[in-house]
Design a protein around this nucleic acid. Structure first.
Lengths: 221, 221, 221, 221
DNA sequence: GATGAATGAGGATTCATTCAT
DNA sequence: AATGAATGAATCCTCATTCAT
């Protein structure tokens, strides 16, 4: 067991060395992902984090603030992946897909959180969309436009392409639990993640004409 | 799409002629879709349906029962569409896609409900998955297997293809509100629905080699 | 099946020939006896009587009025028994006990109702006590004072004797269900009623010196 | 009666030193005794205990759990009295009766609670009977069997003797309020309790031939 | 006389949050 | 930083009762 220097952004790990705040964030992430914001009780988060509900307010100002902290912690690595992909210096290729897959399959709660929010509608969700989702789409859009065979699609079809990726990535991991059960597959096993990544690359090929070289994208997780 | 003779189970219509139960179902569908089950207050449903909260229980045994009635009402037409598509007598083609699109774009709340449930996890969602989603997948699977160029895909890639349709149909309309805002498009306009339908047919073509004859399935809504 | 002339005071009988009001009274009696006034829902009474809750108000003005009708119907025969016993023309003896036993064991709900009310306390119960219980005690007191060996007891002990009979008669049948279970006896069987009657006569003998001749008091029910 | 050292489970006392839980138990005992379980509103218990309805749930899981806690607190001393009486080392005598009287007259709510439950019938009451009343009868049965002149009664009359004591003790204090009003006596005054105790001893004498030496067991309350 | 729907008050309970300790 | 108790608003739901049909 190597010494763990507490990193703000890190997920889980050896239980005893986790900050209380991190334990709360972990508990909250799991519960918000499963039951949504309204369906999650502060008491349950606290219990799961091993403390009493009141104590939670020593670490986060409110349920809402905790929720946003969970989102923030989860979304930052995604920004970084997309930023790297949008870097004009970087070579085009399936690396972004592979990296995204790896990240989401490692913390599937994140994908579910994002879908919950996107699904919600109303004031609250609109703020989320503006603050969190628009930057993601802006970056993804940049990355997409560097694809070689894009001319195959009309300009007005591009948003649909973007959304296709949204669904096949975020949607896939968000629903991995339920759909895995329907199909009797563990969609979060490393095999399945690898297969899904290959599938996405193949599909990209057919849609965009990219990634002819990239069937290897496997050692995810 | 065949002419729709108004039936007891119909949606919307002249406000005054709606049964109280139908008004409740409409109100509940909208609110459950927007806020999820836990986030929706029975009082709000009642108010929106124009009656006092207690009266609601003359029509539905509980919030849960109401929720299930909403799902049932929404899902039945989907079963019928898929059943028709799975009928071996029926000619293959994009009709199923077109019909599904038309139905979902006409009541986008339904798609959101389905995603809410599929997202939820836990006991509750698993029951939904078993009772509602598995039959859908069974029928869709039958329909898919009749595609001509299916040999292009490995047997283990078929579930991923199925899921792709799930995401591009249910996911699309479930997230239409939020993603439409990000992309600054009204994804529920009849133009957009038509475009999305053409997109899906085109994508099917590239994935399955089908639908060469039927791209113009546009008179949706 | 002989012709049944509808008698206001009669209990149960051939189900089909019962007035709706009688069915309601029967249902109410059973439920009030089991669960008390507050614990009984008008809806349950109606259901048990085979009609819808609203219809009940065609027969009784309110839950309270129904309750009082149940009491009235049940208590009238008891008054009559006590009146006969207090009649100075009547020969003294255990006949009153035997008759009371027979009546209460035949409709044990009545005893429970009386105990419920007596137990309750508060405004409501005090009204019951004044209206219903005081006349019973007045009559019973008259009957007691005609006992031969009463001089054995102080004047201030007489109320305790009266209460002893109250408990051993009303209390006995009120608790027959529960205590029968504890003791593993069916206290409402005709054997048990006969035994209990003999017991009471024997006890009266020892307390009041009466009833030397009366061990036969058996053919109850 | 031995000296009573104040214990956590004690009744009444200097108002300010009572635990909140104790105040709730006191309030609940009084109200449940007067109005029964169904007739008592949690809000009223809370108000009487000086707090808001929700706060009550910090101390008791539910109305039902509170009810059971009230019963448990009240019944424990009764077990102890009966245990002492059933002890084969202890000398036989009216001490048990005296002690029971003292306890019940000091908290008459308890007797009413017991009668309420015994009266109730249905699932709920049966559980009570099994859990609470059967042990009482088992102990009382042991105590009874040590009486000298028991041979005077048939074996099948013993349950009726047991029940007689049940009625004359629990029934007496349960109905003390109402019957006291009918008879125009304060049955809970120390005089009345003493007189009732003497009455019971005298009655025991006549029934069992016991207690020739101990009639003066009067220092109750 | 029966029905089903409506009503509004009140039922128990949960909730997020606060605060003294 | 943690706790347990307090709070009051809000939760879902049941209740007795009414009324048009």
């Amino acid at each position: 067991m190597t010494a763990v220097t507490p990193q703000p952004g890190r997920r889980s790990g050896e239980a005893d060395t986790l900050t209380t705040s991190e334990r709360i964030l972990d508990a909250a992430e799991a519960l918000f992902a499963e039951k949504g914001f309204a369906g999650t009780a502060v008491r349950d988060i606290a219990t799961r984090a091993g403390l009493h509900p009141g104590s939670l307010y020593n670490h986060f100002e409110s349920k809402q603030a905790l929720y946003e902290a969970v989102l923030q912690r989860g979304l930052r690595p995604i920004y970084e992946i997309l930023d790297r992909a949008a870097d004009p210096e970087a070579p085009p290729g399936p690396e972004m897909l592979v990296a995204l897959m790896a990240h989401l399959s490692a913390s599937p709660a994140l994908a579910r959180l994002i879908q919950h929010e996107t699904l919600a509608g109303g004031e609250h969700a609109m703020r989320f969309v503006r603050r969190w989702l628009e930057p993601v789409y802006a970056r993804a859009s940049l990355a997409l436009e560097r694809s070689p065979n894009l001319g195959d699609w009309d300009r007005e079809e591009l948003p649909l392409l973007l959304m296709t990726y949204h669904h096949l990535i975020f949607g896939h991991y968000a629903l991995a639990g339920a759909l895995g059960q329907v199909l009797d597959i563990d969609l979060l096993s490393s095999d399945a993640v690898e297969r899904h990544t290959r599938f996405l690359v193949k599909l990209s090929e057919r849609l965009l004409g990219t990634a002819e070289e990239g069937e290897r994208g496997g050692n995810a997780t």
